[in-house]
């Protein structure tokens, strides 16, 4: 049985109570992109200042539950100052962390274990997968970030 402490880790509550990178950036030049969770009415606006393939600044506004707010706050801290390639890699790693395979929905098999060592405090969100209805809360910010990069055709250098 999933325990509430797995979900509401202290670091998550900390980001919820004291969210990082709240605010707005003038758009343009910043990229502005909106994300919605139609299930619970959460709304998120992400502002991205990208210069020479680097995410120089990121700001967030909107409202949501503790999981979506903490996830977006932790995301902003994790990707700020990173190259677009690094940002995209971080998005992929996080999505993998949140993946519940169909086999587990079927009642068979275990979800693959993501490599937590490279994830820093984001690893605290791993407990969310034990509460499947909350996964969408945790991924909202990441999907919105990914959408923002895609919509504006932001390319990395492609070098690995």
């Amino acid at each position: 049985m999933a325990n509430l402490d797995d979900l509401y880790r202290e670091i998550i509550l900390d980001h919820y109570r004291t969210p990082r990178n709240r605010g707005e950036l003038a758009s343009p030049p910043a990229i502005r992109t909106e994300g919605y969770n139609p299930l619970c009415g959460d709304e998120l606006v992400i502002y991205l200042d990208i210069q020479d393939g680097v995410l120089v600044d990121i700001k967030l506004s909107g409202h949501g539950c503790s999981i979506s707010q903490a996830s977006s706050s932790m995301m902003s801290a994790a990707v700020k100052g990173k190259t677009i390639d690094e940002v995209r890699a971080a998005i992929e790693r996080f999505k993998q962390l949140m993946t519940v395979h169909e086999t587990t929905l079927d009642g068979n098999g275990e979800a693959p274990v993501a490599d937590l060592r490279t994830m820093g405090e984001l690893a605290a969100l791993q407990g969310v997968v034990k509460f499947p209805v909350r996964i969408k809360c945790a991924t909202l910010a990441w999907n919105t970030l990914s959408q923002g990069l895609d919509d504006y055709g932001v390319q990395g250098t492609g070098s690995k």
């Binding site: 509430l4 979900l7 509401y8 299930l39 619970c40 009415g41 409202h63 949501g64 539950c65 503790s66 999981i67 707010q69 509460f131 909350r134 809360c137």
Partner: peptide
């Protein structure tokens, strides 16, 4: 200070079933 989703999650620990969300009435919300 507590989002309805979080309220409902905590309540679930007590076996309490409530509905968080906009209840399909977004204009009213």
């Amino acid at each position: 200070g507590v989002h309805p989703h979080d309220v409902a999650q905590v309540l679930d620990q007590f076996g309490v079933c409530v509905r968080p969300g906009h209840h399909c009435a977004k204009p009213l919300m």
